Amino acid sequence: MPHGHDLLISEAIRAELGAPVLVRRLDSSPRSDVSLVEFDGAPAIVKHITGGPDAADRFHNEVTALRLAGQVRPSPVAALLAADPAARVLVLEHLQRGSPAEVRWSVEYAVALARLHSAPIAGLPPYRGAAPDDIDAFLSLAQRLDVPVPASAAAELRAVLARLDGDAAGSLLHGDPCPDNAVLTDDGIRFVDLEGAQRGPAMVELAYLRIGFPTCWCVTALPPAQVTAAEAAYHDTRRSLGHPATGGDLTDACVSWLIQGDALVQRAARRGIDHWAALTRGDWKWGTATARERLLHRLDVVATMTAGHAQLSGVAALTDAMRSLVRQRWPRLSTLPMARNNPLTLGD
């Protein structure tokens, strides 16, 4: 078994945890190196945050979020065992996976998300979601598709963003609460990979269950009964932790995910590109679905949720017309894969 001399583990961490021995490298994003390591025989995860001008910020966000969320009991995150800011190295608890067949994954996910959202938020950056440029680009997409834009739609979308901004200090957000960042243990789900942690409106992450995990390669749909049960468990958990009212509107959150062009591509390709314009020229596959399939699912969700909504009548008319046009223009699009349990094990 190779030794851990090449893992950038400081003498201070070695003195605290013991001599490191590399067990194996693990799959990770292009902006981090992750390994399973034993310290004097005890397994742990060593994560080295690399790449990009924001590497130091991502390290700070993850360390801060892990320490804050670790104050909640039961903890919704892997424990932070040690950290070296100079090398941007974290040593994390090695989570033992449980048996997914014995639990309702969506409910466990929602409970863990509620615990995470109930943690303190001091020291985290504010939420960065949909922006006015996203509104302009999305409405331009409708025009390119020859869908009439109701006169009230732009103002309604601006009001959605304003309402979400009004809850900008509300909760500790994971930033990318995807199924492959949610480890199912025998004690419930625990989250990992919190580099994108922020403080903001909790609803933008609870919306993942309806809108289909929008920042994830494994975008999927969940059966409506599972979504209903998971959302109820989320609110029950928040109340049990002393949060009698959860701020924000789930419909607003789903609308905000719909208009974000960045939610059509993986993280490395986000920001600074009009993905809506690219969508009219061609389609592309990312993980379990294409960009146009993601759009169609989100249009379905938002059109259904906004139907009869007094503050979003223009958005309701727009999204209903757009989903009809998308189906007509690209008739071979598939629906998102349906996950009966964990989205990482489709069909289970």
Rank of each mutant, 00 (worst) to 15 (best):
M1S: 13
H3Q: 15
H5F: 03
I9K: 04
S10C: 11
A15I: 01
R25W: 09
D33K: 07
V37E: 01
P43F: 03
V46Y: 03
V46K: 04
I49E: 02
G52M: 05
F59K: 08
F59H: 13
E62Q: 10
V63I: 07
V63K: 12
R67T: 05
L68M: 04
A69E: 03
G70K: 02
Q71H: 10
Q71F: 05
V72W: 00
V72T: 06
S75C: 13
A78W: 00
L80F: 04
L80R: 03
V91Y: 05
L92W: 02
L92Y: 03
Q96A: 13
G98F: 07
A101W: 05
R104T: 10
V107Y: 00
V107S: 02
E108H: 08
A110D: 01
V111G: 01
A112S: 14
S118N: 11
I121R: 15
G123S: 08
G123I: 06
P125T: 12
P132E: 13
A137V: 01
L139S: 12
A142T: 06
L145G: 07
P148E: 15
P150E: 04
A151H: 09
A154M: 10
L157K: 10
L157V: 10
R158P: 00
V160S: 06
D165S: 14
A169K: 08
G170I: 02
L173K: 06
D176F: 03
D176I: 08
C178A: 14
I189W: 00
L194D: 07
L194W: 09
A197G: 11
Q198L: 14
R199N: 09
G200Q: 00
M203V: 15
E205V: 04
L206D: 02
A207R: 08
A207K: 09
T215R: 01
L222Q: 14
P224C: 07
A233E: 01
Y234C: 09
H235D: 15
D236Q: 11
S240F: 12
L241Q: 05
G242Y: 03
P244L: 06
A245F: 09
A245Q: 11
G248A: 06
D249N: 14
C254V: 03
L258V: 10
R267Q: 11
I273C: 08
G282T: 07
W284S: 13
T288R: 09
A289T: 05
R298H: 00
R298E: 02
D300Q: 13
V301C: 07
V302A: 04
M305S: 08
A310E: 14
V315K: 08
A316P: 10
D320E: 15
D320K: 05
L325S: 13
L325M: 13
L325Y: 08
Q328L: 11
L333E: 02
P337K: 01
R340F: 08
N342P: 00
T345A: 13
G347L: 01
